[in-house]
Amino acid sequence: MRWTHWVNFPVLLIMIWSGLFIYWANDAYGISIFGFSLFKFFPKWFYDYFHISRRLAEGMAFHFLFMWVFFINGLLYIGYTILSGAWRELLPKRGSFKEAWQVLLHDLHIRTTLPPQKKYNAAQRIAYTAIILMGFGSVFTGLAIYKPVQFYWICWLCGGYHVARILHFAFTIGYVLFFVIHVLQVVLAGWNNFRSVVSGFEVVETAIETEQEIAVENSQTNNSDGKQI
C-alpha cells in the first residue's frame, strides 16, 4: 500500500505533464462572459515556462504509456486494500461527514477539541476514499475520450464526449488541489508521521520520555501502512 502510494506520485505527475501537452493543442476551457474572457486555464507564460507548446504527439505517446502504469498501480492498491481489510480504516462511516466538519473546524483553529479517531480521522476517510474514486473516474472518462466509438457505452455513461473531457480535466485540477492540501498536512503532521509513510511503522513516545515503544500498528488492523495525513 505504501509502495503504490509512492509509485503513484511520479506517475500522476507524468500523466498531468503529458496531459497538458494534449490540452495545449485545443485549450478550450475557461470562463468567459459576453465573449470577454475572464479567466482562461493556463496563460501563455505558463505554457512557455513548462515548454508545453507544440508537443501533442509526444504528450499522447507518454500519456498512453503511463496510463497503463497508473491503471495497474491503481488496481494493485484497490486489490490490496480489499484483501488486507485496510478498507475498514479508509471508507467513511456513518457520521463521518459530521465528524469531518468538526475536524475541519479544529484544523482551522476554530474548534479546540478533535473527535475521537483511529488510524484516519473522518476527514481523511472522506478525502482518501474520494481520491480513489477520482482515480477510477480519470480512467473511466479517459477511456470515454480515448475510444468513444468502441467504448460508446462508457462515453454515454459519462454524459458524452464533451462532458467526459471536462470531467477528465476537472479530476486533474482536483488532484492538484488535493496535492497542495495533502503536502501541507504532511508538513504540519511532522517528521514522525512522514517517516511512517516510508517505513510502515510509527514511533509512539510514552509518558516517560526515555522509554520508547514501537507501535507496529499492524497489530490492530493487519496492514503494513503508516499513519498518513
Binding site: Y23, A25, A28, L56, Y161
Partner: peptide, 10 residues
C-alpha cells in the same frame, strides 16, 4: 456525426 480531431476539438 461528431468529427473528432486529434488536437481535441470536434
Amino acid at each position: 456525426y461528431d468529427f473528432k480531431c486529434v488536437e481535441g476539438w470536434d
